[in-house]
Amino acid sequence: MATEPLAKEVAGTCVDAGGSAIGMPQLCFDWFPNQIFWLVITLVVIFLVLSRVALPRIAAILAERQGTITNDLAAAEDLKAKAVEAEEAYNKALADARSEAQRIAAEARAEIQSGLDDAIAKADAEIAAKAAESEKAIADIRAGALEGIQVVAKDTAAELVTALGGEADAAAINSAVDAQTKG
């Protein structure tokens, strides 16, 4: 800043004849009271608007939002706890059902096993009876067959003796056949 225009400004001429600024308009002290006056008014208005209306309102909005978020988080926490509880209950029910099923299966198996044992015992007994009966029949048959053989052998022996020209002695033949077949 040159000192010359400043001197003019102090003298009260900040603008030349063409309407242009002389030097820096910022240093025109003629305009200072006007600017300071309006600045003070502006600041007071802004301060009142902010401190009475705007800032409390925004603070309230932010607090309310914070509250809402906190509540929502708490609710979410509750729901989560409930979900965990439900899951536990479900798992418990599942385990119960599984053990119940195992118990029922074991019972059924035991029942079946006992029925099976009975049936097997019965079948065994039947088989034993049948086997005994068969053995008896076989023994009878064998005895019958032995007798038949003796009769046939005696007859055959008598015939042979006769055919060879001998005299068939029934008692001698009988004792001879008996002695032969005993061995």
Binding site: W31, T42, V49, A54, L55
Partner: peptide
């Protein structure tokens, strides 16, 4: 320009008030 004269300073300061009012209120 007296201290109370409404000037372009007044205009633009009041516009600033209006802007702040619109933005914050």
């Amino acid at each position: 320009i007296a201290w109370y004269t409404p000037t372009n300073v007044t205009l633009w300061m009041f516009l600033a008030i209006a802007a702040i009012f619109a933005l914050l209120v």
